[in-house]
Amino acid sequence: MSPEPFLGTTSHSPVRHHILSVLVENKAGVLARIAGLFARRGFNIYSLAVAPSEGHARFSRVTIVVDAESAPLEQIVGQLDKLVNVVAITDLAPSDAVERELLLATIVTDTANRTPLLDLLANAGAAIVDVDPGAVTVMLAGTPRACDELERSLETFSGVEIHRTGRVALPRLGEPAPK
């Protein structure tokens, strides 16, 4: 079975990815410490999402999708854990995680493409969040795969601008999937 494609195009997808859900102190420079560590140790980051965590300003949660081919996961986690501002690391295999991502896309519209576009959006479960006479902005909150599929579908339209947030993830509830 071919590995699950993600992050848009398969050409950029790591063969083996892992999701690190990292609780960090919400202090100046913490993101630079994480990025700097990955850069100097030669670990690849595929996506990264940061936001304040669990309702208080003291901590943030950083969701990092790492390429477990670029370095052993044990090394990445071990080095990351040495950063003093890193409080906790949860390593999520894709099979053990609920992953979601947000995609925003603006598409130039005309009378010819409006109908197929609306059909496509309805099928994908995407919502229209902004319109003007010549364009529409749509949103999809879904699995990375759903975002990949929508992105690929939109390739047939011209004048498309896409922004994706990178994924966030939490452990799947219940028993972890057998390895």
């Binding site: 100046a28 420079g29 630079a32 410490r33 700097g36 100097r40 040495k82 003093v84």
Partner: peptide, 14 residues
Amino acid sequence: ITGITMGITKHNFL
């Protein structure tokens, strides 16, 4: 200097 020494200190403070 905190930026410069990020990778060569155990930790640094501003």
